[in-house]
Design a protein around this nucleic acid. Structure first.
Lengths: 222, 222
DNA sequence: GGGCGCGTAGTACCGCGGTACTACGTGGCC
DNA sequence: GGCCACGTAGTACCGCGGTACTACGCGCCC
């Protein structure tokens, strides 16, 4: 049995979803919320398996509510619904930690399949949006393990040197690296020097860029 | 009517798909191929709406075949199928231009829905894979105009300072920036200093990291 | 006019980073 | 045994980077 919390500012919309979910035995609507703040509160209180979240709402919007619900760490998975397939919404929702993104004009069985998938920890995206998402993904993931492994400069690094490069990629100074790795600063300098030579970087700054370009360092926005 | 080309090295597998697709009126299997090269040839010849592509095949694999079919520019959309949900396959397939990625243990209706979506120009991904894809996506597209605009540190930068930060993000030295911007090195230093203070970085290395984290610098693998 | 934000530019100082060495212990391989 | 790769460590030197100032011209607004 999958417990669901319905979040939408329009009562009629909520009613429609409620009817649909009641029509199948596997889902159980445990609550409704009309805006973001109420959604966050009820999600914490009812701990539903799935939160059916509308994006556009007065007050706290669905994105922010999603962020807070996900951040709260419960096991609730958020399935975001919208009438508009704007890229910004999709991006924001993904970054907020949503497990799915469907359009409101989805067929009932699609919605139910989505809820099922999300409840089991998987994720779903409306086919119409997936196309654009894949195009972007192909752009943004240039050299993730694969091309990276083929880069002769990267494979020429020893394990230790790779560790050092990762540390450099975090922005640590030689002194900090020495401290964390329990080494002398001289040793760190030796390693860094060898890394720079091997990857063809003139200074640690280009090493940081190299690390990002080759997936050794990961963006970690704040 | 959706025309389909089935590509798989195992005759039994092809047979199974053929039977399934024949069981519904909307799809029409127009051909079969047992390996990558044959798939590329037949795709060009038969011009199917959808190519049902197995990844693992002797000789030219499904990824390479997908790349060539997509590159050929026909209107065929490739739906990749695999028994293994390895990330590398998914990434490679997406980069190759595949329109979809499903697991072979998908239910028949899922497969048919996938073919339908792909034929109409949309894209589909198996829910089990979407989860990980979204996680990665959230990392790789950190600040696609949105959170970036919300970051007070970023908006506090003047236009000039933002330009300087981008230049720093490229790994340029103060001297290089001065040369390219036609400025004195002193001026560059002044700007860099102000940027560091505003974004809360102690040195240009952390500024580079900041730039990457906030989408001012883009991975540009070689 | 006077303030203010911004871009420009300078001087002086210090320290971290990078280079160019040398050096030694360890483990693996021929 | 001897060689080699690797990780460790040191010294010496120089220069870029960062800081702390000061300064001035320009456009804008009260």
């Amino acid at each position: 049995m999958t417990t669901v919390l319905i979040v939408d500012d329009q009562p009629l919309q909520r009613y429609g979803f409620h009817l649909l979910l009641d029509s199948v035995p596997e889902t159980d609507v445990v609550g409704e919320a009309a805006h973001g703040a109420e959604a966050v509160r009820k999600a914490a209180e009812l701990r539903p398996d799935v939160v059916l979240m509308d994006v556009r709402m007065p007050g706290m919007d669905g994105i922010e509510a999603t962020r807070r619900i996900v951040a709260a760490g419960g096991r609730s998975h958020v399935l975001v619904l919208t009438t508009f397939d704007l890229d910004e919404y999709v991006h924001a929702a993904i970054r907020a930690g949503a497990s799915g993104f469907l359009l409101k004009d989805a067929r009932p069985e699609e919605l139910l399949a989505g809820i099922r998938a999300v409840a089991s920890g998987d994720a779903v995206i409306a086919p119409a949006l997936t196309r654009r998402l894949l195009d972007e993904f192909a752009q943004y993931v240039p050299a993730h393990r694969g091309d990276a492994a083929e880069d002769p400069r990267l494979v020429s690094l020893t394990d230790r040197e790779r560790e050092i490069l990762v540390a450099v990629g975090k922005g640590w100074t030689n002194g900090e690296i020495a401290a964390r790795f329990v080494l002398s600063e001289s040793t760190v300098k030796t390693h860094v020097g060898r890394v720079l030579a091997k990857i063809g970087a003139r200074d640690r700054i280009q090493a940081v860029i190299f690390a990002y370009d080759h997936g050794l360092a990961r963006p970690n926005a704040d």
